[in-house]
């Protein structure tokens, strides 16, 4: 009974799970397989056709670094990257083992000896770069949302403030991240001077650039959502004499949640695109730097490795958007709305 309830909830948020669960339960298997095939089959067919065209086109393009990488080449390079990262991890483990042994030996000789633990400073692997990019994009996005949503709510509540803020928003919204980057870099290196930095400067520049670019969609959409709350609901709030704060979290936030999410999804999409560009331009660690380094490297493998990065960037962007969508399904009250 209870399990059924959980399943019900789960499939509400992740609708594609429904036929899979039914299939596992053995409910009308042929029917479920048909549904899954219809859902998975057509996209799969599209993918196969894409791969064929890609392979064909790739073999026809010659560059100074050899042929343009086809699907096979990309697969090989992906496996290479996996191996390299495994090797790098083994090196790291070996380094720490050696260090520990050395320190133990020192301590055995002289228990009062000072032992140093040095961090390993190998090259970041492809997967380290993915991690760096993800942390940067998420922290920039979350920080931007924490700023943009309250401001959006406040300017949405007051037509006067909205009129005052609107020109500023409209002015900064279309600014490309690449224009912000030099300014942010200079400001960070001027302002962020500590002996013992908690964050690296490159992380801060990338993160702040992302933040500046993804403030606006969230802010605008939140403000519009708040400004368009139905007059009747506002009257209900007035008749009940809800306090300012109660009004915000009982009436204003729930009713503007759908618009807020539209803004958040736009922002996250922009954040991810901005980040890669910023990392390339500023040589800050992350996937963008990986692409740039490979381009500079110019070996026969480079194009294949860049193509791996391109696909990974696309896949992560897609997953980030799906994540937001699922979050929206969980939080939004309007389950009837067709959210895509």
């Amino acid at each position: 009974m209870h399990e059924g309830h959980i399943m019900q909830k789960l499939t509400n948020y992740l609708p594609w799970l429904k036929p899979v669960i039914k299939l596992v339960k053995g409910e009308n298997p042929t029917e479920q397989i048909k549904i899954i095939l219809a859902k998975v089959g057509t996209p799969l067919l599209g993918l196969v056709i894409f791969l064929i065209i890609w392979a064909g086109a790739a073999s026809a393009i010659d560059t100074s670094l050899g042929k343009f990488p086809g699907p096979g080449e990309v697969r090989t390079q992906f496996l290479n990257l996996l191996d390299e990262s495994k090797a790098e991890k083994e090196k790291e483990i070996a380094f720490y083992e050696r260090q520990q042994k050395r320190n133990e030996a020192k301590l055995a000789k002289d228990p009062n000896a000072k032992v140093k633990i040095r961090p390993y400073t190998g090259n970041p692997t492809f997967f380290d770069q993915i991690g760096t990019s993800l942390v940067t994009v998420l922290s920039g996005f979350i920080l931007a949302s924490l700023i943009a949503i309250p401001i959006g709510i406040i300017i949405g509540l007051s037509p006067g403030l909205y009129a005052a803020f609107n020109p500023i928003i409209q002015l900064f919204k279309p600014v490309s991240p690449l224009a912000w980057l030099p300014l942010v870099t200079m400001v960070v290196s001027a302002v962020y001077v500590t002996k013992d930095p908690m964050f690296s400067k490159s992380y801060l520049t990338s993160m702040i650039t992302v933040l500046l670019c993804c403030l606006w969609p969230t802010m605008i959409n939140t403000a519009v959502g708040v400004a368009s709350i139905s007059k009747d609901l506002i009257n209900v709030s007035k008749v009940l004499r809800l306090s300012w704060l109660t009004n915000i979290y009982k009436i204003v936030i729930p009713s503007s949640l759908p618009m807020m999410f539209t803004g958040l999804r736009l922002s996250l999409g922009i954040a991810w695109m901005v980040l890669i560009a910023a990392e390339m331009l500023a040589q800050n660690p992350g996937l963008g730097k990986f692409v740039w380094d490979e381009f500079q490297n110019g070996s026969s493998n480079s194009l294949g490795r860049i193509m791996v990065a391109v696909l990974v960037i696309g896949a992560i962007g897609f997953l980030l958007d799906r994540g937001m969508l699922t979050l929206q399904r969980v939080l939004s009250w309007d389950k009837t709305a067709d959210i895509r």
């Binding site: 139905s230 009747d232 609901l233 009257n235 209900v236 007035k238 008749v239 009940l240 004499r241 009982k250 009436i251 729930p254 009713s255 009250w333 309007d334």
Partner: peptide, 19 residues
């Protein structure tokens, strides 16, 4: 001089909070 719950209103289109 201001709205208040001692003068409760039933609105034409129910105006329940949909969530």
């Amino acid at each position: 001089d201001e709205p208040g719950p001692e003068r409760a209103v039933v609105f034409q289109n129910h105006s329940l909070l949909p969530w």
